[in-house]
C-alpha cells in the first residue's frame, strides 16, 4: 500500500512560510540594532523617522540614517553572503565543516586587500578591487592545482585550499610585519572584520550583485542536493556535475571577494548558521539556501550590534565577536553530538 500521510518534504509553500518567519525576525533584529548604540535613540525616534515627523536636521535622524542604517544593512548583506557561501561550499565539497575560509578564498581576498592597504590604496575602490582579484586568484589556483580533472574530487580541492590558505596567511603576516605603524591599526582592525566603513553608495553596488548570485545559486539547489550524495549518481541522473561545481566555486568566490573587501575577515558565520539551519530543517537546499542566508544576515547584524555596544563608546571588530560566540558553540555541539554532524 502506498501510504498517504504527509511526508516531511520541502514544498514551495513551506519555503515561503519559513522565509517569511525569517524575514520577520530579520526586521525585528534590524529595529533593535537601530535603537542600540552610544547615542540615545528610542523606538519613538525610529517611528518618527519612518513617518517623517522628526525634523530633517535632527542629529539623531542623521545618526540613524547615515551611520547605523548603512552599517546594519552591510552587516546583513555580509552575513547573508557568508552563510550562503558556506552552505554552497559544504554541499559541493560534501563536508558540513567546509566554508570559504577553508578553501583559502577568504585569505586570498584578504591578501589582495592587505596589499592594497599597504600601498595606501583607498577603501572605496582600491581595496575592493584588489580583494576581489585575490579571491579570483585563489579560486583559480585551487581549481588548476587541485581540480584539474573534471570530476573535481572533494578531498583534493580541500587539501589544495588548506595549503593555499596557509600560504596567504603567511603572506598577510609578512605585510603586517613590514608595514608602517600608521597603517597597522587599520590593517589589523579590518582583518578581523570591520563594518564601520559602510556607505549607502557601496550598498547600492553590492546588494544587486549579492541578490543575483543568490538567485543563481538557488536555481542550482536541486542539483546540489543530488551532488551531496555522489558525483557518479548525480551525473547519471543528468546533473552536469563539473559545470555546477565550477559555477558554484566562481560565484561563491565573487561573493567572498565582495564581503571581504567591504567588511574584512569575519569567521564562523558560514559554519554556524548553515549548521543550525540543517539541524532545524534538514538537508534540502531548496529550503536551506534561503533560510541559512537570511539566518546569516540576522546573526551578523546581532553580532555587529554587540561589537559596537559591548565596549561602548569603543568598538570591537565584529570578527572577534563571531569567533567568541562561534568557537564555544562548536565545542558544545561537538561534545553533545559526539562528532555526528549531520543528524536531523
Amino acid at each position: 500500500m502506498i501510504s498517504r500521510h504527509a511526508h516531511a518534504i520541502v514544498t514551495p509553500g513551506r519555503v515561503v512560510v519559513i522565509c517569511m518567519i525569517m524575514g520577520a525576525v530579520l526586521a525585528l533584529t534590524m529595529t533593535v540594532a537601530l535603537v542600540a548604540g552610544t547615542a540615545d535613540v528610542s523606538f519613538s525616534h525610529i517611528i518618527g523617522i519612518i513617518t517623517g515627523s522628526l525634523p530633517h536636521d535632527d542629529p539623531l535622524r542623521l545618526i540613524v540614517l547615515k551611520i547605523r542604517l548603512p552599517r546594519i544593512i552591510l552587516a546583513g548583506i555580509a552575513g547573508f553572503s557568508l552563510a550562503l557561501g558556506g552552505v554552497v561550499f559544504q554541499a559541493i565539497l560534501r563536508n558540513p565543516l567546509a566554508d570559504p575560509f577553508i578553501l583559502g578564498v577568504s585569505s586570498g581576498s584578504a591578501f589582495g586587500a592587505v596589499l592594497a592597504i599597504f600601498f595606501g590604496l583607498g577603501f572605496s575602490f582600491g581595496v575592493p578591487v584588489c580583494s576581489f582579484a585575490g579571491a579570483l586568484l585563489t579560486i583559480y589556483l585551487v581549481m588548476s592545482l587541485g581540480a584539474k580533472r573534471m570530476g573535481m574530487e572533494s578531498s583534493t580541492i580541500l587539501l589544495t585550499g588548506v595549503i593555499i590558505n596557509a600560504f596567504f596567511t603567511a603572506v598577510i603576516m609578512f605585510f603586517i610585519s613590514v608595514s608602517a605603524d600608521e597603517r597597522l591599526h587599520s590593517m589589523l582592525f579590518w582583518l578581523y572584520g570591520d563594518l564601520s566603513r559602510s556607505r549607502i553608495g557601496q550598498l547600492g553596488f553590492i546588494a544587486p550583485i549579492v541578490l543575483a548570485v543568490f538567485l543563481w545559486l538557488y536555481s542550482l539547489s536541486k542539483e546540489l542536493n543530488i551532488i551531496t550524495t555522489g558525483d557518479d549518481i548525480a551525473a547519471q541522473l543528468g546533473v552536469n556535475v563539473g559545470a555546477v561545481k565550477k559555477t558554484c566555486l566562481v560565484l561563491v568566490s565573487l561573493l567572498m571577494g565582495l564581503v571581504v573587501a567591504f567588511s574584512g575577515l569575519i569567521g564562523f558565520v558560514g559554519l554556524i548558521v548553515p549548521h543550525l539551519a540543517r539541524m532545524a530543517l534538514r538537508a534540502d537546499h531548496r529550503m536551506l539556501i534561503p533560510v541559512a542566508s537570511l539566518g546569516g544576515a540576522i546573526f551578523l547584524i546581532a553580532a555587529d550590534t554587540l561589537a559596537r555596544t559591548l565596549v561602548s563608546p569603543g568598538e570591537l571588530p565584529v570578527g572577534v565577536v563571531t569567533a567568541f560566540m562561534g568557537a564555544p558553540f562548536f565545542i558544545l555541539l561537538l561534545r553533545k553530538r559526539g562528532g555526528q554532524w549531520s543528524r536531523s
Binding site: 511526508h7 516531511a8 518534504i9 554541499a91 560534501r94 563536508n95 558540513p96 536541486k222 542536493n225 543530488i226 551531496t228 550524495t229 555522489g230 557518479d232 549518481i233 547519471q236 541522473l237 543528468g238 546533473v239 540543517r278 534538514r282 538537508a283 534540502d284 554532524w341 549531520s342 543528524r343 536531523s344
Partner: peptide
C-alpha cells in the same frame, strides 16, 4: 537507464524519501 553507484555519500540528513525523490530529477 538507472544506475546504483558503488560510491554514495550521506553526510547530510536527507530522509529516505528525499533520496528516492532525487530519482525523479530527470
Amino acid at each position: 537507464v538507472a544506475m546504483v553507484a558503488q560510491e554514495n555519500y550521506f553526510r547530510f540528513a536527507f530522509t529516505a524519501l528525499e533520496v528516492v525523490l532525487m530519482g525523479r530529477y530527470p
